[in-house]
Design a binder for these strands. Sequence first.
DNA 1: ACGTTACATTACGTTAACGTAAAGCACTCT
DNA 2: AGAGTGCTTTACGTTAACGTAATGTAACGT
Lengths: 131, 131
Amino acid sequence: MTQTDTLTIREMCDTYAVTPRTLRFYEAKELLSPIRQGAKRLFTKQDRARLQLILRGKRFGFSLEDIRQLLDMYNRDGSNEAQLSRTYQLGLDRLAQMKAQRDELTIAITELETELREGQATLAAFRAAAE
Amino acid sequence: MTQTDTLTIREMCDTYAVTPRTLRFYEAKELLSPIRQGAKRLFTKQDRARLQLILRGKRFGFSLEDIRQLLDMYNRDGSNEAQLSRTYQLGLDRLAQMKAQRDELTIAITELETELREGQATLAAFRAAAE
DNA sequence: ACGTTACATTACGTTAACGTAAAGCACTCT
DNA sequence: AGAGTGCTTTACGTTAACGTAATGTAACGT
């Protein structure tokens, strides 16, 4: 009963498979802003949502600084138009970067595949020679 | 004519778009082993071939340490099937990683595009309200 | 002789994303 | 009382792949 609706640092760590150090680090980087009860941190559902976005961003290979900027966008607090517009532009830029990155990856994949076919042929020749 | 068949460090840098520091660094890491003329380095065509492999490896996302091992295996005989097979397997693993990474990127791109459409709508509403 | 390349070596600096002590406070259990 | 648990802060350590001085020397043009 009496759901606290907040998690301690340990509960957060267990839930999301991160270390306390990581959560404190993210707070220092202003990616999270848990409330305080005395000296202890209490993570709200807002923090949990943000952490999930952070972790997803990391899986995509974004830096924490990239993620910090993206979080601003996911936060549709949209105070004024100028801010919103700037944020939108940031997203567009990021999108272009991501597509470029994907294209490069595709090229590298193709190259590596070619390379591997050669390797496979060489290997097959070896095995044939060994009878 | 008297082709020297070797390149100075600067010629190497110009040819492959790397800095002198990089070439010296690679030598320290035993990725390259240019011959010496006094104190100066002279890069043979062997070095050039290796550098090309290094740069390609980097495009594939291999670390220099990975690359060093791959180069060693490649040079050690080249006639050892076990080593060749291992190299091939490393390539396969890396290829799988790269494809997975690309798939995740594609997902992220789609998500971001959705998010951006939302942002654009919000922005349009703002502007309509401002008349 | 003098200044300018062109190279060299040595070695400290940089960035990201935490890891890892070190030391202390506040409970709780025995 | 003493031990253990869980949290805190401060702060130095780590890895990769070079960047960036600082300093030195040999060769070359004028």
